[in-house]
């Protein structure tokens, strides 16, 4: 009797929570969708939120690997290869970004395969250290291959985001901040859909099992290496696509920037702070932390405003190991 009433309360709570979550998600998306109207196309605010959405996509992509329990400190490798791949293909071959952006994702996935071959037999801390070292390889090669990449000078004049033509209907995503904002918004939404699908599929369950107890997972017949590699490849692919979007959005890239520690650190920090075993957490962290950083801390401390990310990361590791969203939704 007690048991069943408990179960009932639990189910009710869960149901209520899911309803609240869905309502919150819907409201949040509605807000983001109408943001250009709300801020009356204020360029600065829109740019910040475009970047926040891009970071959200990076954090979501990072989390595709992070959910298996691996922590990568080297996602800038995929970001940089994606950015350079797409930029070079469109500059040298004159291809449309519609083609080069997915191709850039594939390049990044190829690099992910390389990283997988070297690093995937490592676990935990050693995997993290190996990924930290791994970034140096594409960075130094890109910086030295002057004939192709112009070395440390970087690439300028990259074409803007592409135009979508459906029949007579044209949308030029590169034309203004509002259009770019919507393209990145749609991409992040698609990625959120992919992450939701993966996390709820058998693969998500397998990755969760690997994270909890790898040997037991292997013993019940989960192909550990296959799933870890698959999650790394997917993570690399989408990070590469985000990198390509960044290249066409900012239209200037150089090795120190796109392979910099910044793009390794930020997705990791956002995912861990948001909750790396949750679907929504990483994106939520990006949408909250980056605007806070840009609107509040950047004007206060023009140099060194990114200390915020370090502080938040330290607090999370010490007091909320499951992250903010994980604490709110899973642990209670």
């Amino acid at each position: 009797m007690i048991q069943s009433s408990f179960t009932k309360t639990f189910q009710d709570n869960t149901k209520r929570r899911v309803t609240v979550d869905r309502a919150g998600l819907f409201l949040g998306l509605l807000l983001l969708f109408t943001l250009p109207l709300l801020v009356q196309s204020n360029d600065y605010i829109l740019q910040v939120f475009t970047h926040a959405l891009l970071l959200a996509s990076l954090a979501l992509a990072w989390n595709l690997l992070g959910v298996s329990g691996s922590i990568s400190l080297g996602h800038a490798a995929f970001f940089g290869v994606g950015a350079y791949g797409s930029a070079l293909l469109s500059l040298e071959q004159g291809l449309s970004p519609w083609i080069t952006i997915p191709l850039a994702g594939l390049f990044a996935a190829g690099l992910g395969l390389m990283m997988g071959l070297i690093c995937l037999r490592l676990r935990g801390a050693y995997f993290a250290l190996a990924t930290l070292a791994f970034v140096e390889i594409p960075r130094v090669i890109t910086g030295n291959w002057d004939a192709l990449t112009k070395g440390s000078l970087g690439l300028v004049g990259i074409s803007g985001l592409p135009t979508l033509c459906v029949g007579d209907w044209h949308v030029d995503f590169g034309a203004g901040t509002t259009a770019s904002y919507y393209l990145v918004f749609v991409y992040s939404l698609v990625l959120l859909g992919v992450v939701t699908f993966v996390f709820r599929s058998n693969m998500g369950l397998a990755l969760e099992a690997i994270r909890d107890e790898e040997i037991a997972a292997e013993a019940v017949g989960i192909h550990v290496t296959k799933y870890r590699l698959l999650s790394l490849l997917m993570s690399a692919f989408f990070t590469g696509v985000s990198g390509a979007c960044y290249a066409h959005l900012v239209r200037y890239i150089e090795p120190g920037l796109v392979y910099g520690l910044h793009f390794s650190a930020i997705p990791m920090i956002l995912a861990i702070c948001g909750g790396r075993f949750t679907i929504l957490g990483p994106a939520l962290a990006a949408m909250v932390l980056y605007p806070v950083d840009q609107f509040i801390f950047h004007p206060l401390l023009p140099a060194g405003h990114e200390f915020l990310y370090g502080a938040v990361l330290i607090l999370t590791v010490l007091f909320m190991p499951n992250g903010f969203w994980g604490r709110l939704r899973n642990a209670s």
Partner: peptide, 15 residues
């Protein structure tokens, strides 16, 4: 965990 924590410290000191 020490890697993640000290990474945060590194970002903090750097800034």
């Amino acid at each position: 965990n020490s890697i993640v924590l000290s990474f945060g410290v590194a970002v903090l000191i750097q800034n």
